[in-house]
Simulated scan of single mutants.
Amino acid sequence: MASITPSQPVREALARRVTSEPGPATEVAERQRAENAAEQKGELAPDRVAIALDAESQRFVSTLTDTSTAEMLRKYPSESQLAYSRAVMAYLRAQMGK
């Protein structure tokens, strides 16, 4: 039975492909890994978590803010998710009003 191995040009192409520069997905993954490592070390310590009800979408929104810089670090749900929920609620209100 014959062995299935790639030819020399194919092996060289694969070797070049593996050692090429990282793509955008790799860069994003590395950045997220570094952020997670910083959070675990305590370098990125948020001071304030706020939870509020968005009246239009009827969803709770949590925001994580660093009070020393007043920078919002995280928001859940995102603004696009809230916009979708607002649109759905507006549609439901219109249907109930008929």
Rank of each mutant, 00 (worst) to 15 (best):
G23C: 03
T67L: 14
S7T: 08
S20L: 06
R48C: 12
L73Q: 00
S78P: 02
A87F: 04
E43G: 11
V28L: 10
E30C: 06
S80A: 12
R48W: 12
Q81R: 07
Q40L: 14
P46L: 09
L73K: 01
P46C: 08
V88W: 02
T65Q: 10
L64D: 06
A38M: 10
R16K: 13
Q81N: 02
R93W: 00
K75E: 10
A52H: 15
R59L: 15
Q32V: 14
Y76V: 13
G42H: 12
D47W: 11
E43K: 13
M72R: 15
R31A: 12
A38K: 09
R17M: 05
R74H: 08
L53M: 14
E79N: 10
I51H: 11
R17V: 00
E79P: 01
A87L: 05
L53F: 11
A15E: 02
P22R: 03
T63D: 11
V61S: 04
P24V: 09
Y84G: 02
T26V: 07
N36E: 15
T26W: 09
Q81P: 00
G42P: 09
Q58V: 11
S62E: 15
Y76Q: 10
E30I: 07
L73T: 03
R31G: 00
R16H: 06
E12S: 05
Q32C: 14
A94Y: 00
K75T: 08
E39A: 15
A52E: 15
S20P: 03
Y91G: 01
A55I: 11
M72I: 15
M1S: 04
V49N: 12
R11Q: 07
Q95C: 01
A83K: 09
S57R: 05
R59E: 13
M72T: 14
Q58G: 09
R33S: 13
T19R: 09
A38F: 08
V28R: 07
A50H: 11
M72Q: 15
A13N: 02
R33Y: 04
